[in-house]
Amino acid sequence: MVLDIWKKISKKQVDPVYLLYGTEAFLINETKQLLVDNVLEEEEKDFNFSVYDLEETPIEEALEDAETFPFMGEKRLVILQNPLFLTSEKSKGKIDHQLAKLESYLKQPAPYSILVFSAPYEKLDERKKITKELKRNATVVEAKKLTEQETKAWVRERAVTHGSGIENDAIELLLALAGTNLFMLTSEIDKLALYAGENQLIRKEMVDHLTARSLEQTIFSLVDKVVHKNVEAALRIYYDLLKQNEEPIKILAVLTGQFRLIYQVKELARKGYGQQQIAGTLKIHPYRVKLAAGQAGAFSDEELSRIIMLLADADYQMKTGGMKKEMLIEMILFQMKGR
């Protein structure tokens, strides 16, 4: 698990080769930053830290750097970006990598260097010999979306790094308000920890007071008001969005997406899919599935179909100028009241 690898790096327990791959950019960036912060002293970075783009530089040139003894320090850190040769894609450039030299290096890596492959790809080509060799000899960080439990554990760890703790209820509310984007969560946790103060607990009330709501989470709250038949509160949220200069067509798109998600979750659950399976099928975070599943029970299939049709019609009206955009969403919310 990526959190376990981070803990080891933070304790300066580093390995000679790392492979970071996947599409969750935050996890890749955070791992690289942890290595930079824990392997090198500030004054060493000019001499012992190198970054190569393997779409522009042959691997043998980077390996030559890794095999060079560090200057004024004990370790050398070499980061290799975009190792496209690990995938099934063909390189657009004219770089011809001597992969035999990489295979040889992996069998006996320089004891004074840390070699880091940063591969922002969803999949690697497991059929290739070099991919197999690298995965066999490297510490692998798969940068995929964290599960609900991993996200919560990460939130706790992030708070601890600031000398704070965080209540379980506060974590739940934070995820509900800010979503599961790790870049956004980092900003929110850092702000909350600063507000709480060192050795203090981040409480639910602080999260409610200080956390910035993403548009998606604000729309989720709006839908939740509809679920509980409190359309007046839903309208207040909608009017607040308009005051924040959110475009009605953008609000409509996110609102439609939320109801489509509720419908999909309801349908897949009926087929016996668990929440993790649904998340994998729809390619979304499991926490979003959990929230949508909680809302799905409030609507019959007929109600959801009718609402989605209303939203589709509103989208057509907005794009053809059939009615004032702001009024279209108002009308839909009033119609939902009598569902």
Rank of each mutant, 00 (worst) to 15 (best):
T57F: 09
E56W: 03
D46E: 15
E43Y: 15
T57L: 10
E42K: 15
L35T: 12
F47R: 04
E44H: 09
E61A: 14
N38M: 05
D37G: 08
Y52W: 12
E43G: 05
L35F: 09
L54P: 00
K32W: 00
N48R: 06
S50N: 12
S50R: 04
I59W: 12
L54Q: 05
E60M: 04
I59H: 06
D37K: 13
K45E: 10
Q33V: 04
P58S: 04
D46H: 03
L63I: 11
L34F: 01
L40D: 08
K32A: 03
F49Q: 13
E56H: 03
L35R: 12
V51A: 07
L34P: 06
V36Y: 07
P58C: 05
N48I: 01
E41Y: 11
L40Q: 08
D53E: 12
L63G: 03
N48S: 07
V51P: 01
Y52S: 07
I59L: 09
E41N: 14
K32E: 12
Q33M: 11
D46R: 10
V39T: 12
K32G: 00
E43W: 14
F47E: 08
L40G: 07
Q33T: 12
I59F: 11
S50G: 00
E44V: 02
E60G: 02
V36H: 08
E55F: 03
K45F: 01
Y52T: 04
F49P: 02
K32T: 14
V51D: 06
D53T: 01
L35M: 11
K32H: 00
L54G: 02
P58I: 08
E60H: 03
K45N: 06
V36T: 13
D46W: 00
K45M: 11
A62M: 10
K32P: 00
E55P: 00
A62D: 08
S50K: 07
D37L: 06
F47M: 15
L34W: 00
L40T: 06
Q33W: 02
L54S: 05
E55H: 01
K45L: 09
D46T: 10
E41M: 13
L40S: 09
F49H: 11
L63V: 09
E60C: 03
L54D: 07
L35H: 10
L63Y: 11
K45D: 08
Y52N: 07
E61Q: 13
I59C: 04
D46C: 01
V51S: 08
F49L: 14
F49E: 10
Y52V: 10
E55L: 13
T57Q: 10
E61T: 13
V36M: 11
E41R: 15
L40I: 05
A62W: 11
K45H: 03
L54C: 05
N48V: 01
